[in-house]
Design a protein around this nucleic acid. Structure first.
Lengths: 192, 192, 192, 192
DNA sequence: AATGAATGAGTGTTCATTCAT
DNA sequence: AATGAATGAACACTCATTCAT
């Protein structure tokens, strides 16, 4: 019971912060507003988090993990790599589009000086599954012999950009557009 | 003389703001600090800009224009498209790496809610040259028949991501790595 | 058992408060910290004391009583007054030096507006033994005919100041220094 | 003009802080109240002082200097030492009684952990004139051969205590009482 | 009796902006 | 045009105290 309550509040705080930051940005999301939106007293937030910064960082790690986990949850390693990659790539785009708040928060955070508060090792760990996924495919000669870091950057970067395009509302992406995007990426990295 | 001074101050303010924001972020770059760094009184900034927001937006537009202009300044339209694109792509990466402050500022800005202060039409206008560049190549069947918006997103997104990889310091890119990156992008979008 | 426990907790709270205030002062000694240091829940403190102020006042009275009691515990009324006074004076200094936390707390308290929370009558009562001690000596013409209040102030004040000198660490008092201090005080008040 | 205004505000802030702290203590003297009492905006205080602590420390040093200066302003070094000392001792008591706020502030400060914020050397410097005054008298064999530190502690301590007695209101000191106090001190330290 | 999560008023401080000079 | 002292609303955060368990 106690635990239930505990998690409820922590969760509510996370959710409120996410909502506010994704809409108004870091510095237009005062703790008082977070408290209000989470139905919690201002002081309560400080039982769960040492500071605003820490709350934001914790939220980032949490969402990042969830996001990456999601990409591989439905990965079927018995399938051919191309199919697995297609699933991965489209999943990434669709997940982000379904959760724009989380996507905006993550992008905003990782493009701000905030990100330096998180040790590099931790950041790397978050991306590890993606490195492993692509590195193996390089090893088995399915993908071009490109350093995995570059590979990951290329794939994530292109997907991210396409997500932003869709979320910006200035371009309504059909499923065949998504297919085109996938092929652009795939042709860019596949061997031969 | 007067004019010179005038431009000097405005310029100094821009420069100071760029420096501070790229290092500390929007909300850790107080106007008083900008003033100090620009060797100008706090009040003086308000002769040139209506508000902090306006200053930041003006800086964004300015840097964005400069950045895109740069990409095409050395474009040689008599060359084959592949070569022109290669130049464009590598130029983009190298320019950003040479000007990390400007790059960080632009990324930070365009991933923050700030960006909504700028009318969409204006934002579009900034990217126009890139659309035109790629659209023509689709038309002449050099590139896959992908909607230009997607094409631009794909190209810019992958390049941006690679720039970040390099600037993060966790991967030292050689020129052959850059070549690999270019080919990944090129193979992704070229026809046939 | 129960009683033992009861006293243990109250004692632990007193001790924790003493420790914190003597080191950090009133307003840097939060109840939560007191609770932590006393190995007690924050709420528990409020079973024993109505408020922080009350706790602090209770602690003051307690330490003050203990301090004064101590001065006369080993008083031998059969001895000549000069000897008794010498014992009293040196005892005061040595006790304080042996218990710096208590001394600092007492000084801090009695020089703060807190002290007004304690009724004057109570404060007087605390000092009563000292008044009596010196008044008698005035009466028997061993001491100058000075109003006892002044006499007490003079004696306590000079001793207090010498204690602070020693505790400040800027002067290491030898036992012959103490003797000099005693004689200064004694020569100041003795008759003839 | 500018300077006049400047000092006016700084002075008003000092005065307001003194008033509040002497009455309510450090932690019941919020900056907002200081601002109000000084007829100044809260932010203005921070143009003159980096923090509340710094303001308080600056005030301490200021008052301390003023207090000690005062003691020697009317010293006549041609007079016999006894007379000079009498003047010094009574002046100290009378000054304090005439300026109870300053006295309370100084006592409160110097008995709080605040005092450790001020480098020991600075504190010593404040007392220097008193050391010199008494040390010389030891040297010329007017006073007992007691270490000057102890001498100063003895004199200041007894006077301080007598001041508190008077200010507490529980004893109304006549001028002949003062004379008694002086002689107590004098007989304590004079040679022979 | 004992807990400690929760409260929310209150604190010190910052900072975009103004305006008299 | 230029200054920078002054403003005061807004902020992150603290902490004495309460109360359901």
């Amino acid at each position: 019971m106690k635990n239930l309550k505990y998690f409820d509040k922590k969760e509510a705080i996370f959710q409120a912060m996410l909502e506010l930051i994704s809409k108004y940005g870091f510095h237009s999301s005062p703790m008082s507003e977070v408290a209000k939106q989470a139905n919690v007293a201002a002081g309560t937030i400080y039982h769960y988090f040492k500071s605003k910064d820490e709350l934001i960082c914790a939220l980032y790690i949490r969402l990042r993990e969830k996001f990456v986990d999601n990409l591989f949850k439905t990965d079927d390693s018995t399938k051919p790599f191309k199919e697995r990659f297609r699933h991965f790539y489209l999943q990434m785009i669709q997940e982000a589009i379904k959760n724009p708040k989380e996507f905006y928060f993550l992008e905003q955070f990782s493009n701000s000086p905030f990100v330096t508060n998180i040790p590099k090792a931790n950041l790397q760990a978050l991306d590890q599954p993606m490195y492993d996924f692509l590195r193996k495919a390089v090893f088995t000669q399915v993908l071009k012999d490109i350093p995995p870091k570059i590979l990951v950057a290329f794939v994530i970067g292109s997907a991210t950009s396409i997500i932003k395009l869709q979320l910006s509302g200035e371009f309504k992406m059909t499923s065949s557009d998504l297919e085109l995007a996938f092929f652009a990426c795939w042709d860019g990295i596949r061997k031969g």
